[in-house]
Simulated scan of single mutants.
Amino acid sequence: MLSSVSTFLSAIVDYAGFFPPAQLSLKAAMANYAQYHASPDAWMLGRFVLPASHLEEFIALLPTFPLAQWPLSIVISQDFEPVLSRVQSLAAHNPAIALQALEFPPLTATEITALDLLPQVETFFEIPLDQDLTPYLDVLHHQGASAKIRTGGITAAAFPSAVQLYEFIFACAQAQVSFKATAGLHHPIPGEYPLTYEPESEVTTMPGFLNVALASALVYWQKITSEAGLSLLQEQSADQFLLTDSAISWNQHQLSLPELAIARKQIFRSFGSCSFVEPIAGLQAMQLLSKPEPQTRQELSSKKI
């Protein structure tokens, strides 16, 4: 594997198998995560994304899996302060839980300011793209928190345009606020893909996680114009990406290994995906990763396990 690939994509996929469109049972999602954690692809696996409302069920299932510690990103959707206190207490008393991140739905800037954030826990607030980003990002910068962008869903309308995506990335870089993406980034480069796993699923154009990550890094290092950044976000030709052991470039816009590592820490943190297999398979199709033995490339899909 190229050093540029391992540096730039390390722990980039937060596994969210419990969420649509996969929408597995919690037990099935946990089984997948444990399997991925023991696989050769574990270097690319980030946190296990879990709704706070299912934390007790998660704890009850822990003894059935061999994984000693679970790095969690907890999604809190309501009753923020009481739930935050409960999450903190449960995590503190269970050595199998490594509480690494919290994710919140869209809130007002005032509501974000009022929350007492947990120290040493990365906190992401979803930012609505149809509103002025500046007051949100100003608050996040002041709070030391991160942003979250929704990059897709189970309907075509859930996907932001390339312009919206670029404007968000640029605004985050300007405000010095890192972000994660959620949904819609199952594939390395953009293309026409099914919205769900149903046989007659509608197909729509989806963004690519390699494009988003690379555009974010180039914007962070001020190495790309707005016009070129928009073109990069829509680039569908794998041949236009040049990856060597020491750098990644697109259309003569190059980032060195140290620049890639810093960009992952300072701008694009990760993306949530209900599939871990598809991002890996996409990189294999681009010949950026070697293909493992067939029996190791599996993903549970049953909702009843």
Rank of each mutant, 00 (worst) to 15 (best):
T110W: 03
T110S: 10
A114R: 00
D116C: 06
D116R: 09
L118H: 08
P119N: 10
V121Y: 04
V121A: 06
E122Y: 00
E122T: 08
F124V: 02
F124Q: 00
I127F: 02
P128L: 07
L129Y: 04
L129R: 05
D130K: 13
D130W: 00
L133H: 08
T134H: 12
L137F: 08
L137P: 06
D138S: 15
V139E: 11
V139F: 08
L140N: 02
H141M: 02
H141L: 01
H141A: 13
H142K: 15
H142Y: 10
A145R: 00
A145Q: 07
S146L: 08
S146T: 00
S146F: 00
A147S: 11
A147V: 06
A147P: 09
K148G: 00
I149M: 13
I149H: 00
G152Y: 02
G153P: 00
I154T: 10
A156C: 07
A156E: 11
A157I: 09
A158P: 03
S161L: 08
A162Y: 12
Q164C: 10
Q164N: 15
Q164L: 10
L165R: 06
Y166V: 01
E167S: 14
F168H: 11
I169A: 11
I169R: 11
F170A: 14
A171S: 15
A171R: 13
A171H: 14
C172W: 03
C172M: 12
A175V: 10
V177A: 01
V177Q: 04
V177P: 05
F179D: 03
F179V: 07
K180L: 12
T182D: 10
T182Y: 05
A183K: 07
A183R: 11
A183G: 12
G184W: 01
G184R: 00
L185N: 02
L195V: 03
T196Y: 00
P199I: 01
V203K: 14
T204S: 15
T204W: 07
M206V: 12
M206P: 02
P207A: 15
P207L: 08
P207Y: 11
L210Y: 13
V212I: 14
V212G: 09
V212L: 15
A213I: 04
A213E: 01
A213M: 09
S216L: 04
V219K: 13
V219Y: 09
Y220F: 12
W221H: 15
Q222G: 08
K223T: 01
K223C: 09
I224S: 10
